[in-house]
């Protein structure tokens, strides 16, 4: 089944994921401002895994790819399916959701209708921009589903890569102006 790729950011989904395991006190103490959607139970399963060709020890600048398979396990078609990629950094002291803007151009898919028993398989390429420990997950929702269906997390660590080497910058930054000024002074002395 062919899925439509969505290039818009899906970063809004990350707070949902982070907050999913925390108790919600507001719901029990105050009337909800927005009526909760009571829809069909989720009949989706999301399988998510890295591809076999990924580097074993990825570094900044490497590319990873993941595949997801979203299957409709129910008896009725799932309408208005949306699935998106979320990335979080989990280094101690640097825990944060990551804006995928620079990491991947393929952040989400939309499927108009997924028939019972059918599955949609998607490839999620990613370029590693920053070093650190990361968890990546694909989440799916449908137009009428009561809750999102996340995949299991895939963890990976990006090794740092020297982006700027002082040994290269310093000789150039100090040497080129010195050479020019030295040449200028030498010429003036000769004149």
């Amino acid at each position: 089944m062919k899925a439509r790729m969505i290039l818009a950011t899906a970063s809004l989904a990350v707070p949902l994921l982070i907050g999913a395991g925390r108790p919600s006190y507001a719901a029990s103490t105050a009337a909800p401002a927005v009526q909760a959607v009571v829809g069909e139970a989720a009949s989706l399963t999301v399988e998510f895994a890295p591809v076999a060709t990924n580097p074993a020890a990825p570094r900044m600048g490497d590319r990873l790819a993941f595949t997801s398979s979203i299957r409709n396990t129910g008896a009725t078609p799932v309408e208005g399916l949306i699935a998106w990629l979320s990335l979080v950094q989990v280094d101690r002291g640097h825990e944060q959701p990551v804006d995928l803007e620079d990491w991947s151009a393929h952040k989400a898919i939309a499927v108009a209708s997924l028939a019972p028993g059918a599955a949609v398989t998607t490839n999620w390429p990613m370029r590693l921009i920053q070093s650190g420990q990361y968890r990546v997950v694909v989440s799916a929702v449908s137009r009428a589903g009561a809750a999102l269906t996340p995949s299991t997390f895939v963890d990976f660590t990006v090794a740092p890569k020297p982006v700027v080497e002082s040994g290269r910058v310093l000789p150039v930054a100090l040497g080129v102006p010195a050479l020019l000024v030295g040449g200028l002074l030498l010429r003036r002395r000769r004149v």
Binding site: M60, Q130, K161, V163, V164, S166, L170, V172, A173, V176
Partner: peptide
Amino acid sequence: SGFSLLLVGSKELSL
């Protein structure tokens, strides 16, 4: 040179 030297010493640069 000034621009280049700004980068030296920063250890948390991304690509």
